[in-house]
Measured scan of single mutants.
Amino acid sequence: SHCAGCKEEIKHGQSLLALDKQWHVSCFKCQTCSVILTGEYISKDGVPYCESDYHAQF
């Protein structure tokens, strides 16, 4: 499978399933500020955001 963030193949190591896609753990980050999302996040149109950036933009 391929990472939804960087589009590279996910080989051995940690990956996560979010928004119905596979991601490298380090690629699942806020679209705006690039903080790596480990806990709470909000998505809009399949794109992840941290809570503060989501509320600031939408």
Rank of each mutant, 00 (worst) to 15 (best):
I36V: 13
A56P: 08
C27G: 03
I10T: 10
S26K: 14
D45V: 04
L17H: 08
W23S: 03
Y54Q: 08
C27P: 02
F28Y: 03
H2V: 04
K44Y: 06
L19S: 08
A56R: 15
K29S: 03
T38E: 15
A4K: 14
K7P: 07
H55A: 14
S52Y: 06
L37P: 02
Y41A: 05
D20C: 05
G13C: 06
E51I: 03
Y49G: 02
C33W: 00
G46D: 05
K7V: 06
S43K: 07
S15C: 07
V35R: 10
S34Y: 10
S52L: 07
H12W: 05
F58A: 08
Y49V: 05
Q31C: 06
L19N: 07
S1V: 09
G13P: 08
H24Q: 00
S26W: 11
K11V: 12
V35K: 09
C33I: 01
G39Q: 13
S34R: 15
V25Y: 05
I10D: 04
S52F: 10
H24F: 00
C30F: 01
L17E: 14
S34W: 04
C6Q: 02
A18C: 10
V25G: 14
C6T: 01
D53M: 01
I42L: 13
V35Q: 15
E51K: 07
L16W: 03
K29T: 08
H24L: 00
T38S: 12
A4L: 09
S52R: 12
S34K: 15
E8W: 05
I10M: 13
Y54F: 06
F58P: 04
K7E: 12
C50T: 01
S1N: 06
V25F: 11
T32V: 13
K7W: 07
D20M: 12
G13Q: 13
L19H: 03
S43E: 15
L16H: 15
L37E: 01
D20I: 02
K11P: 14
L37F: 01
T38L: 05
L17Y: 05
G39I: 04
S15W: 06
D45G: 11
C50H: 02
C27I: 00
Y41L: 03
V25H: 08
S34G: 13
L19T: 07
Q22G: 10
C6I: 01
S34C: 14
T38H: 10
F58Q: 00
W23E: 04
V35I: 14
I42N: 08
F28P: 02
F28N: 00
E8A: 14
K7M: 06
S1R: 15
T38M: 05
F28G: 01
D45R: 07
K29D: 02
H12C: 06
L17S: 12
E8K: 13
L17T: 08
S26Y: 11
G46C: 06
D20Q: 11
Y49H: 09
T32G: 11
E8T: 08
P48C: 03
S43C: 10
C27N: 02
S34L: 05
E9A: 12
A4S: 15
C3G: 00
S1G: 11
G13R: 06
L17I: 09
I10Y: 02
L19Y: 04
C3R: 00
S1M: 03
H24S: 03
W23G: 03
V35S: 11
A18W: 03
Q31Y: 06
E8S: 11
H2I: 13
Q14P: 09
T38V: 10
C3Q: 01
T32D: 15
L16P: 08
C27T: 03
P48T: 03
F28A: 03
K29F: 00
K7L: 08
A18G: 10
C27Y: 00
P48E: 02
K44L: 08
C30K: 01
H55N: 11
L37D: 03
K11W: 05
A18V: 11
G5H: 04
P48M: 05
H2L: 11
V35E: 10
S52P: 12
S34N: 12
K11I: 11
K7H: 10
F28E: 01
C30Q: 04
Y41M: 07
F28H: 04
S34I: 00
P48A: 12
P48L: 08
L37A: 04
S26M: 11
I36R: 14
D45H: 08
F28R: 03
C33Q: 01
C50I: 00
L37K: 01
H55S: 07
H2T: 14
E9W: 05
K29G: 02
L16K: 13
A4Q: 14
V25N: 06
T32I: 13
L19E: 06
D45A: 12
D20V: 03
W23A: 03
C6D: 02
C30I: 00
Y49R: 03
S15I: 15
S26I: 07
Q14T: 10
K11M: 14
F58N: 06
A56Y: 11
S43M: 06
L16M: 13
S15Y: 05
K29P: 02
